[in-house]
Simulated assay, not measured.
Amino acid sequence: MGKAKRRVERATSRSALVHTAVTVGCALVAMMLVLVWSAASGHECTKPHASYCLGTGRFVLAIAPTAVLLVGGVSALLRAYRMWKANGPWQVWQGVGWGLLTLMVVYLTVSGRVLLPE
Rank of each mutant, 00 (worst) to 15 (best):
G2E: 04
G2H: 08
K3N: 07
R6Q: 14
R7M: 13
V8R: 05
E9D: 05
E9W: 02
A11R: 12
T12K: 08
T12A: 15
A16P: 01
H19F: 02
A21S: 08
A21Y: 00
T23P: 00
T23F: 01
V24G: 01
G25A: 00
G25E: 00
A30H: 10
M31L: 12
L33Q: 02
L33D: 03
L35V: 06
W37S: 05
A39L: 10
A39H: 13
A40Y: 03
G42H: 03
G42E: 09
G42M: 06
G42P: 03
E44G: 10
C45T: 11
T46K: 06
K47C: 15
P48A: 14
A50V: 10
A50C: 09
C53L: 01
C53Q: 01
R58A: 14
F59T: 15
V60P: 04
V60Q: 03
I63Y: 05
I63R: 09
A64W: 05
T66V: 08
T66W: 07
T66D: 07
A67K: 00
V71P: 10
G73P: 04
L77E: 02
R79S: 05
R79W: 14
M83W: 10
P89T: 03
Q91P: 02
V92Y: 03
W93H: 05
Q94G: 09
Q94W: 07
Q94A: 12
Q94K: 10
G95H: 04
G95F: 04
V96Q: 00
V96P: 00
V96L: 01
V96A: 12
L100H: 01
L103R: 09
L103M: 15
V105F: 15
L108M: 13
L108S: 10
V110F: 04
S111C: 07
S111V: 07
G112W: 02
G112H: 02
R113G: 07
E118Q: 12
E118A: 13
